[in-house]
Write a protein that binds this DNA or RNA. Structure first.
Length: 416
DNA sequence: TCTGGGGTCCTAGGACCC
DNA sequence: TCTGGGGTCCTAGGACCC
């Protein structure tokens, strides 16, 4: 059997959020721009222009730190709708090059370009065409990494930035990786880096020389994956599998960090209601029901807890979600302690026990239809277009003694 | 420096069942 | 009354990614 090597492209849009903002406001071009919020806000940098990066600003840095490093920077709020639209345009370009495209985030994708030579020519020529078409169709630059694995392609696209191409020919993987810092391997973060350093492993070459079973001893399953990565192989769940095999989302969640920490119960409950509604709405949009609901609570001092509850009957109803979340909150919140962040997450999608009371089932279905209809109206006419009566908020099922309808501050409009 | 919001995957302990 | 081993589900926390 002949050894068939795959040809994988990793395409990464250059300074994506900043570039999209420049499309909408060309006067930003060539200036230090920071996307993610205003200079005094709580929050972090989502993206920084290359001009801002010269001052040491990088993504995930607190906005206030960025403001100190680069006071002359222009701070811009993010526009998720704009990014989604540009991302979709980019995806269409990529799809014209290969049927196997996998968007791994809003601004990057893997393409399986194996056996596309007759159509697009050899890898570097195909990449050149891709660059041209991407620019023509989206007015955006991207960087392209090419290799026989996702790992190699990914590392290459990083090295090719900005607006470049890097191709590592099959067989040269280990040589290419050897001089890189272990931190440059996708999946190796701060903690793994420190552990590797403690073992005297600083470069990928050091890692490749290290005994595989020793790595397994030190890191377990992750150690086995690391050994493979040092050789340029796709190892570990993150990288295995065919490109473009689309498995739906496994969880849907929303969270909110307050501008100022608060211990005000009405405010906290209003936030939980709003987050529950956001989660419920996304469940309905995707026709999903969740069996597990999770509360996330972060205190002033940043200590964070999560508390989950699984139900027998999966739900997509705002009110049911909220009831469980509210109960979890009151059972776990240290009363009076100031809260920094609240989050609501739904997971374990699918159907629950099919055995349920017929009447109850019917009522639940009606309720779901009503909420979906409300969702569509909001889509058309805006968030303020419809508010379900507080009496209805209790739901048809009436399975609770708590009444969230009695909550203050339920209005979305004042908070949005 | 004072730490967002959206996710995925892994580990580990305890409950529970056979 | 003492005691096994495996499998699955649930929950909590944490590393990591963009």
């Amino acid at each position: 059997m002949p050894h068939l090597s795959r040809t994988i492209f990793h395409v990464d849009m250059d300074a994506f959020f900043v570039s999209v903002e420049e499309l909408f406001d060309p006067s930003l071009k060539g200036k230090p721009v920071i996307v993610g919020g205003q200079r005094h806000e709580r929050g972090v940098v989502s993206a920084a222009s290359y001009e801002a990066r010269k001052f040491g600003v990088h993504s995930a840095m607190p906005l206030r730190t960025a403001a100190k490093l680069c006071p002359q920077a222009i701070f811009v709020d993010g526009h998720p709708d704009r990014y989604r639209e540009c991302s979709e345009r980019a995806r269409r370009v990529l799809s014209s090059f290969s049927p196997q495209v996998e968007m791994v985030s809003i601004d990057e994708a893997y393409l399986d370009m194996t056996a596309t030579e007759r159509l697009h020519g050899p890898p570097l020529l195909a990449a050149h065409k891709l660059h041209e078409k991407m620019k023509a169709e989206t007015d955006l630059n991207c960087s392209i990494g090419i290799g026989a694995s996702r790992l190699i392609a990914k590392v290459c696209s990083g090295k090719a930035k900005p607006n470049g191409v890097l191709y590592i020919v099959p067989g040269r993987e280990a040589k290419f990786l050897a001089p890189l810092d272990v931190r440059e391997i996708p999946g190796v973060g701060k903690v793994s880096e420190q552990k590797l350093h403690a073992l005297g492993i600083r470069k990928v070459g050091d890692l490749a020389k290290y005994d595989d079973s020793d790595l397994e001893q030190q890191f377990g399953k992750w150690g086995v994956a690391l050994a493979g990565k040092a050789r340029g192989e796709d190892a570990g769940a993150w990288f295995e599998g065919e490109i473009g095999a689309d498995e739906g989302a496994k969880s849907i969640g929303h969270e909110h960090t307050y501008d100022q920490d608060t211990a005000n119960v009405a405010q906290l409950e209003a936030t939980l209601m709003r987050l529950s509604e956001m989660v419920g709405r996304r469940l309905r949009e995707n026709q999903l029901r969740a069996r597990t609901l999770q509360l996330k609570l972060r205190y002033k001092d940043f200590t964070t807890i999560t508390r989950a509850h699984s139900v027998d009957l999966p739900t997509q109803l705002d009110n049911e979600i909220f009831q469980h979340i509210q109960r979890l909150f009151h059972a776990n919140w240290r009363r009076g302690a100031e809260v920094r962040l609240l989050g609501v997450q739904a997971s374990h999608f699918g159907q629950g026990s099919p055995q349920l009371d017929f009447l109850e089932d019917q009522a639940g279905e009606k309720w779901e239809h009503a909420l979906s209809a409300a969702d569509r109206l909001r889509d058309k006419f805006g968030e303020g277009a419809i508010t379900l009566g507080t009496g209805m908020k209790g739901g048809f099922r009436e399975r609770t003694h708590e009444n969230p309808a009695a909550l203050p501050g339920k209005s979305k409009r004042s908070e949005a």
